[in-house]
Amino acid sequence: MALLKFKKDDGPVAGSLGADVEALLENYSIEVMPRTAEKVEDFRALLPEGTRVYIAHIEGTPIEDMVATAKRLNADGFPVMPHFPARIIKDTVTLNDWIARYQGEANVDQALLLAGGVDTPHGDFDSSMQLMETGAFDRAGFKRLHVAGHPEGNKDIDRNGGMANVDAALRWKQAFSERTDAQMALATQFAFEAKPIIAWADAIKAAGIDLPIHIGIAGPAKLQTMIKFAIACGVGPSLRVLQRRAKDVTKLLVPFQPTDVISELAAHKAANPDFNVTHVHFFPLGGIKTNAHWAIENGGASARPANV
């Protein structure tokens, strides 16, 4: 797919989904892995200037590959937010080493802290809260820390205590945000339906959790790919959106796109300016280029690539 051409002072020639969606997609972020980043010749041809790029740290990925990817993205002018998955970090020595490498080689000053999708911890850490309790990120002067949010529950921490564990974790993170100098936000797992997202965001706000929400949205992908990732990641009620689509044989070969969920969230945000979903975070399940092109075609000026 070729990149859209832009007029000097206008939005994309193809038009966008409208002003509400353009506003919601402003300063969106996107997630990559070292192996997927290698397939992208030039991120500046795909992403808006200043786009925050998360680097997912999957178990078994060498820290050298993570840092090299961060260094490349930083050199291209993109702020980098690497994952720090607690359960694959052996100890505080390893944690401090990672922080030093990211800072020294790639000018990183922000991180996503999460438990990580590993059942058995590799060492001393089991949760993002334990990482924060070390004080390592504050001592290193990290300016921004994001932590995980789960609009439809989290199979890693709610299997015993139900939603009570999830709620307790959110309250702890809220309290930590009030005693750290770093800016904090919730970066969430993806969901496919707006209503559960809105209900969750409103509920945690009513409970006193006022951290900004960067809502996870799955980028365009084949339906089979989307269902596979959704099940693996524990996506809950909104999985029914995919299940309904799977029953329609005419749609099985048509990529699923986030048009409906983003449009509904954007309309809700426009009607409710205090809605605490502030940004969109894309999981490019169908590929970084595919996701970026969807944003370019639908997001107006908010998605205009850096080198245009």
Rank of each mutant, 00 (worst) to 15 (best):
V254H: 06
V32M: 05
A168Y: 02
D202N: 15
Q189S: 01
N74D: 00
A221Y: 07
D76A: 14
S302K: 08
A19Y: 01
V235H: 11
F282K: 03
V241Y: 02
L113A: 03
G234H: 07
V166R: 08
A301D: 05
N298A: 11
L285Q: 10
T250A: 15
L252A: 12
R245M: 11
P196D: 06
I262M: 07
F275L: 05
A56V: 12
E105W: 05
A56D: 00
T225W: 03
D20E: 15
I204P: 00
R245A: 00
A266L: 06
Q189T: 04
D20T: 13
P82Y: 04
D124C: 00
D91F: 01
P212K: 05
A164T: 11
P62Q: 05
A136E: 04
L17A: 06
F275A: 14
N27S: 08
T120D: 13
E41W: 00
D126R: 15
A266V: 10
I55A: 02
E105G: 04
K90Q: 11
D65V: 00
Q257A: 15
G208R: 04
D97R: 14
P220Y: 04
T94I: 08
R52V: 15
P220M: 08
P255V: 01
D167R: 13
R35H: 12
A106I: 09
E264G: 03
I197Q: 01
V166E: 11
A70Q: 03
A14L: 08
M226E: 13
F256K: 01
A266N: 11
K90Y: 08
G162D: 12
M66S: 09
E59K: 14
P79S: 09
Q174N: 13
G104I: 02
D119Y: 07
F256E: 07
F176I: 09
D9H: 09
V147M: 10
E152N: 09
L170P: 00
A301T: 13
M1P: 08
G153S: 12
Y102T: 09
V108L: 07
F6I: 00
S29A: 14
P151F: 05
T225G: 06
N272L: 08
I215R: 03
D42Q: 08
G141Q: 05
R144K: 15
A169G: 07
L242F: 00
A199P: 06
G50I: 07
H146I: 02
T61Q: 09
H146N: 05
I209H: 08
W98I: 11
L95G: 03
D181N: 15
